[in-house]
Write a protein that binds this DNA or RNA. Structure first.
Length: 479
DNA sequence: TGAAATGTTGGGGCG
DNA sequence: ACGCCCCAACATTTC
């Protein structure tokens, strides 16, 4: 039987765009007037962290609910996307396949393979931009090369128009596909994603597009106006905490940008400071696209033969939040409990791992990728290469954070430390940054025995700093 | 989107 | 009143 061209359904493949609003692929498909097959594929080969798996499961449930309200039901499949897509196209005789672009090297490779399907099948394959304000290849410097420094990138980025989000009306109903198609159940998805490995995250997060919008609105009510100051205090709700929602595309950067602009037309310094952070996200994607090898390899090649120590026992102490430096440990424990860490503290724990412990940044990046709910290859890579001094616009090698000074500056009352390292809660603020310097009497009163209730420092920061400077100085390119 | 070392200045104590 | 020293406080340089 010949299927009328008009009736051929469109596959909308959801990837890191788990929302219905400002979703180009979905919009275009619905405008074509075809029946829509919304699809999500658990890619069996894709690297997914423990926290990401938990997040995806809940996000998919949400997306499914939202789709149902609009008359669609999400099809979930497991496997190699190329095979899965071939199968579904064959099954449904789909006439179009749409998705919104992802920018990781593996995903780009995959996209290229999938596009080739149109050589063998009569199918309209298109991808769209819904996840970045400016795509990585759209920005180049005057020499037609990618930017390696943030500020000039930002100056250029700022000048681009930000496309207005185009959204479907609330009561909109999609045309659904008439035939039943096999889909994995949410229950089996839950098992496959091993969500129980991170079940404590439910105490801190609610994945999904509607929560993303609420969080944005809450942030725009007031916190954004103090962002430039408050963002450095990990104990405050000074940052937007939208990173996981942005990573999974439960909210789009364009939605954020336009909501901010509508509310604060004459933007003040604090608002601009926040917008810069959105640009950092785009800068990270820019770098990942142009230098895909930097996922594993330092951008600055003189770091290739850096004499890392990579001590496994110290790595474990860092991961467990048992270094004996309270702010470092507070951060690592916040990460373990909540799947998130305040950025100020990310910089400190990063500096500590790489420079105090001389453990290669890749170990830190792997651990973060597994534990973070906002695990994002572009952002994670940029962050770790930045703190190590081996990346683009990186912190110079001699910039070594002092865990005590940072704590005094950014956790002035020790509230953040007390929250995540409760065994130190009884210490007076004066000693909470350096329990190992406190007099015996103070420790006794605080009911604290170092080495028993809380570890002694695993390294002496002052000595570690000198060793790091020495090692870094010998790195080629610095003399 | 550091921190430590080194340099400079100026007020106060004191002979 | 003056010079000298000490040392905060701040500025500059260095890693």
């Amino acid at each position: 039987m010949v299927i009328n061209e008009e009736l051929k359904p469109a596959i909308v493949w959801f990837r890191q765009d788990l929302r219905l609003e400002d979703n180009e692929a979905l919009n275009v498909a619905s405008k074509e007037g075809r029946a829509i097959i919304p699809l999500y594929i658990i890619q069996d080969h894709l690297k997914l962290g423990t926290s990401s798996r938990w997040w995806i499961y809940h996000s998919i449930c949400e997306l499914n609910e939202e789709l149902k309200k609009s008359g669609l039901s999400l099809i979930i499949r497991i496997g190699n996307p190329l095979d899965v897509l071939k199968e579904i196209i064959k099954e449904t005789l789909a006439g179009s396949l749409f998705w919104n672009r992802c920018y990781e090297p593996e995903n780009l490779k995959l996209d290229a393979d999938i596009r080739k399907l149109s050589h063998f099948q009569d199918i309209n394959i298109q991808s769209f931009n819904a996840n970045l304000i400016v795509e990585p290849w759209e920005i180049l410097n005057k020499q037609q090369k990618p930017f390696k420094v943030f500020t000039p990138f930002w100056k250029t980025w700022e000048k681009f128009d930000v496309k207005k989000p185009e959204s479907l009306t609330k009561s909109f109903k999609f045309k659904s596909y008439f035939k039943n198609i096999h889909s994995e159940s949410l229950m089996s998805l839950k098992l496959i994603l091993k969500t129980e490995d991170a079940s404590q995250l439910k105490n801190y997060w609610k994945p999904g597009a509607s929560e993303a919008k609420q969080m944005l609105n809450r942030f725009l009510e007031e916190p954004i106006l103090h962002y430039d100051q408050a963002r450095d205090i990990p104990d405050l709700f000074g940052t937007s905490r939208l990173s996981p929602y942005l990573h999974f595309g439960e909210i789009s950067p364009r939605m954020i940008w336009h909501t901010i602009m509508t509310k604060y037309r004459n933007s003040n310094a604090s608002v601009e400071c926040y917008l810069r952070q959105l640009a950092w996200r785009e800068f990270a994607h820019h770098l990942l696209y142009h230098f895909p090898e930097t996922v594993n390899v330092p951008l600055r090649k003189e770091f290739l033969d850096f004499p890392w120590k990579n001590d496994k026992v110290q790595l474990k102490a860092w991961q467990d939040g048992m270094t004996g430096y309270p702010l470092v440990d507070a951060g690592m424990r916040e990460l373990k409990a909540t799947g998130w860490m305040h950025n100020r503290v990310r910089m400190l724990v990063g500096s500590f791992l790489v420079k105090d412990l001389l453990i290669a940044w890749q170990y830190g990046a792997d651990f973060f990728f597994d534990k973070l709910v906002d695990a994002d290859l572009a952002n994670n890579t940029l962050g770790w290469q930045w703190v190590s001094g081996c990346g683009a616009d990186a912190a110079p090698y001699f910039r070594i954070f002092n865990p005590t000074t940072q704590a005094e500056k950014f956790d002035p009352d020790g509230n953040y430390i007390k929250k995540w390292v409760p065994e130190l809660a009884k210490l007076p603020a004066k000693w909470i940054y350096e329990p190992f310097s406190a007099p015996e009497m103070i420790l006794k009163i605080a009911d604290l025995e170092l080495g028993l209730d809380y570890p002694k420092p695993i390294v002496d920061h002052a000595k570690a700093r000198l060793l790091a400077l020495d090692a870094l100085k010998q790195t080629k390119g610095y003399d």
